[in-house]
Design a protein around this nucleic acid. Sequence first.
DNA 1: TTATTATTGAAATCAAGACTCATTAAAGTT
DNA 2: AACTTTAATGAGTCTTGATTTCAATAATAA
Lengths: 142, 142
Amino acid sequence: MKSELQVFQEFILQRGLRRTLERERVLQEIFEIHGHFDVEELYLKLREKGVKVSRASIYRALPLFREAGLIREADFSDGHWHYEHIYGHSRHSHLKCLGCGEMVEFEEPSPQDLEEHWVKRYRYRIVALEVQGYCPACQQGA
Amino acid sequence: MKSELQVFQEFILQRGLRRTLERERVLQEIFEIHGHFDVEELYLKLREKGVKVSRASIYRALPLFREAGLIREADFSDGHWHYEHIYGHSRHSHLKCLGCGEMVEFEEPSPQDLEEHWVKRYRYRIVALEVQGYCPACQQGA
DNA sequence: TTATTATTGAAATCAAGACTCATTAAAGTT
DNA sequence: AACTTTAATGAGTCTTGATTTCAATAATAA
């Protein structure tokens, strides 16, 4: 399996962009983080390690990582985006409570088990599913 | 079936809040709108009709409607929240493309059909599901 | 009717994120 | 290796959705 850096470099090449140390350091940091992260966290973690990357560059890099299929926007629960890396990770989903905002993260072994999980296991009253993925057009581009 | 206004008034009573004309006009307007809406749309529609309600009051009313189970935050696709009324509506879901942001709205007859819909019908590569609903605690409160 | 206090509107404030622009540097060309 | 082109960066500014402030208003209880 290709490393996330390899995937990104191929993406950069294909797009006619340039390789920069800044973006690679940001990407590296993202894949060292377990779970969700936001821009500020990322910025501070990099600073801590003495890596000098501006917030602006992070904001500019994230859409690229997203378009390369490496990360995704996970939620916008508290007024700003939270992300998580998806490359190389097992598919998992979120159950978000519209009342209190609580979010349960879960993995479902098969779509057939979904109903069981939601209703029997979590006792959630389901209002809507947000299914995120790639449409046919974007699968070909990627 | 109770009207949305009745539901809201019961919610208001239960919370020890006060009934105000402003909130009721906003709620009425929301339920006259088909599909999604955002604060600005709502504000302008009310103004058009000569209903004087400030943006601040709208921003303050929406969380109440959400907590009362009348509306939900649908997506944050273009930098601000979009909402939709859920009370009295059939459950429907969204397929959101992480690449281009395209959103397909669909209703699924049963959870068992989900996989079929996603994979065979929409040819989406699924990355994550966002399941929104009410957790057990909030179901009792509501 | 009076007292209490939630709610309102207008304006000020906050913050995430986008934009500006001069500088730097990656990659291609000679 | 020097030169050219132009993408990318960083510091700061700007935008704007949303929250907060505060004096005035009005809904409810006493």
